[in-house]
């Protein structure tokens, strides 16, 4: 198929950036979206032009690196998939496709479609862990049975890939879904309960410092999240936060 691509080009953080138009031809439905961009880039290089910068690594939906806003949707059409799992068979001949980077104050553009998401790491550094040192002498793993239902819920929350689609989708650019996924995972497990209060207070505090917006419960994040992280996690985090604030620090 032949397509018209409208792509955000921005040389660096300082540059203002603009949309540019590129035609691509002979795209097969079996190609992934990123392979289609590979074709474009190969063409640009051969024409002596600068290829389009975009983030990607695993190309199988798990590293969270890819991050494109395609036709107004984070990770494009299709539910519970990342950009790299999107295949061209979702488009048809003659389509025009708009491709933009994640847009959020906390995610400045590095170049073209690449943004800086290190704010998410800093939220994690503030409390997204269990304070246990490495030692060969932690208790045997089976000494702490975890009810399967809790283990499964914790697992579901833990599958967040830290892509930031939730932030990019939210009209307030809130990072609540991301933060609540980690808070929930650890709050649901006995190992994480000990520090649950400090964790939620510190992570939420850092989230605010980074300039992410407030959550107004529109639920858009859940719809676009490639891993189906549920809004229940936000509710759980709010409960945790409330109880931590009430008990004091």
């Amino acid at each position: 198929m032949n397509l018209t691509l409208k792509i955000w080009r921005q040389k660096n953080k300082q540059d203002k950036g603009r949309m540019e138009t590129y035609p691509v031809s002979n795209i097969s439905g079996d190609m992934s979206f990123l392979e289609m961009l590979d074709v474009l880039n190969e063409q640009l290089i051969n024409d002596g032009k600068e290829p389009v910068a975009f983030d990607h690594d695993c190309r199988e939906g798990i590293c969270g690196m890819c991050s494109l806003f395609i036709n107004g949707e984070a990770h494009g059409p299709g539910r519970e998939i990342t950009t790299c799992q999107l295949h061209m068979r979702s488009f048809k001949d003659g389509d025009t496709i708009h491709i933009e980077p994640w847009r959020a104050a906390a995610f400045p553009v590095v170049k073209d479609l690449v943004t800086d998401r290190s704010a998410l790491d800093r939220i994690m550094n503030a409390g997204g862990f269990v304070s246990v040192n490495t030692s060969g002498n932690t208790i045997d793993a089976n000494t702490i049975p975890v009810p399967k239902a809790d283990a499964d819920k914790a697992f579901d929350a833990a599958t967040c890939i830290g892509c930031g689609a939730c932030v990019a989708t939210c009209k307030n650019a809130s990072a609540m879904l991301f933060t609540s996924a980690k808070v929930s995972q650890l709050a649901l497990l006995p190992q994480g309960k000990v520090e649950a209060h400090d964790r939620v207070l510190n992570m939420v505090h850092q989230m605010d410092l980074e300039g992410f917006g407030n959550c107004t419960n529109t639920g858009a994040c859940e719809v676009e999240c490639p891993k189906g992280i549920s809004l229940e996690n936000i509710a759980r985090m709010n409960r945790e936060y409330l109880s931590a604030s009430v008990t004091g620090e």
Binding site: V132, I139, P145, V146, A154, G192
Partner: peptide, 12 residues
């Protein structure tokens, strides 16, 4: 043991 202590959600 170490991973479970960190909160790694292995299948149960």
């Amino acid at each position: 043991d170490q991973c479970v202590a960190q909160g790694v959600p292995f299948a149960r």
